[in-house]
């Protein structure tokens, strides 16, 4: 399988008034062409920061990529010049943003906002770009007559479709979908996910789907990375993660999903809160909340180890198969 994206030892920090927040810590990630990877984790785990890092859109200041490599199609994105990076953005890698309400420019028509990215990357006349933008609108299920309308005339779900149309307009190699359905209500969520999946299959695009919804991941992704406090704590194929859950944090995430068959009065939440990212514990960052923690976990941060074919876990006392 051909690699499309490889992230090595990525470290991203945000600096504010002498506090340094380590948003992403020694992150390693591999994505093959045509694959979908789900990044799952709670709020503040560094999922969005990772995606923005891949786009080269970390706001600097306060953010800074301190260390690491992001290799996309054989080139390190972090070493690209500004102009070369701009040629990648929107053309090779594009991003679907989390909040459709604020991600569209309120004073520009939706059609022009789609045509804009086409005009930037493809040598098309204005009229041809408009035609292509209209095609994109139809593709995401919005009648092309609405080209000249403004974002405030659209519902949230339609705005998200417009954002998807923008992201897909130049046939990118890689889509970063940052919680594309979080701001939408449940019925629209399914529609938007189906749409993304359909377009992805048609064009064999690779995708990173950021979410905190494990159910969505099962539907869409072949691989899953579980993120906690800026690190990937477990990584593997969707089957490996679901059938052979190994990291205590992943276990906790599954336990906090209600089971439709079992009669449960209460869910089993993960105790405690995520550690302050400006003051991470010396050992394993999940140790304070971990049921399986030992002295060793307090003292040193475990390395990532491969426990199955392509199944990685960052834990000393990971849960072995059949132990649950």
């Amino acid at each position: 399988m051909e690699k499309i994206l490889e992230i090595k030892n990525l470290k991203i920090e945000y600096k504010s008034n002498e506090r340094t927040v380590e948003a992403v810590n020694n992150l390693n990630l591999l994505l093959n062409k045509g694959e979908s990877l789900g990044i799952v984790g709670e709020t503040g785990a560094g999922k969005t920061t990772t995606a923005l890092g891949i786009m080269g859109l970390i706001p600097d200041p306060p953010g800074k990529i301190v260390n690491g490599e992001i290799i996309f199609e054989g080139h390190d994105i972090l070493k690209l010049s500004k102009n070369k990076l701009r040629a990648v953005r929107g053309k090779k890698i594009s991003m679907i943003f989390q909040d459709p309400m604020t991600s569209l420019n309120p004073v520009i028509t939706v059609g022009d906002q789609i045509a804009e990215s086409i005009r930037i990357h493809e040598k098309l006349s204005r009229a041809d770009a408009v035609l292509k933008a209209k095609e994109m609108l139809e593709l995401v299920g919005i009648p092309e007559e609405r080209y000249a309308e403004y974002p405030h005339q659209f519902s949230g779900g339609m705005k998200q479709r417009v954002i998807i149309a923008i992201a897909l307009s130049c046939n990118p190699e890689l889509i970063l979908a940052d919680e594309p359905t979080t701001a939408l209500d449940v019925t629209i969520q399914a529609q938007v996910l189906d749409l993304i999946l359909k377009l992805k299959r048609e064009k064999n695009t690779s995708m990173i789907l950021i979410t905190h919804d494990l159910g969505v991941v099962v539907e869409i992704c072949e691989k899953v990375a579980i993120m906690y406090a800026g690190e990937i704590v477990e990584y593997g194929t969707t089957e490996q993660i679901y059938e052979n859950t190994s990291h205590p944090y992943t276990r906790g995430l599954f336990d906090s999903i209600p089971d439709i068959d079992a009669k449960e009065d209460r869910l089993i939440p993960i105790q405690g809160l995520m550690p302050d990212p400006a003051d991470l514990p010396k050992g394993c960052s999940f140790e304070p909340r971990c049921r399986y923690s030992t002295e060793k976990c307090k003292e040193s941060n475990p390395d990532t180890q491969e426990i199955g074919n392509g199944h990685f876990v960052k834990c000393y006392n990971y849960i072995k198969r059949g132990e649950q």
């Binding site: 929107g90 604020t102 991600s103 804009e116 990215s117 990357h121």
Partner: peptide, 25 residues
């Protein structure tokens, strides 16, 4: 604003972002 980030994500140049996206707002 978020839509300025969207414009950057499209690969738009900084000058155009200021003139086309930011100024009118």
């Amino acid at each position: 604003q978020d839509y300025i980030r969207t414009a950057r994500a499209k690969g738009q140049s900084e000058n155009m972002i200021i003139i086309y996206h930011a100024l009118k707002n």
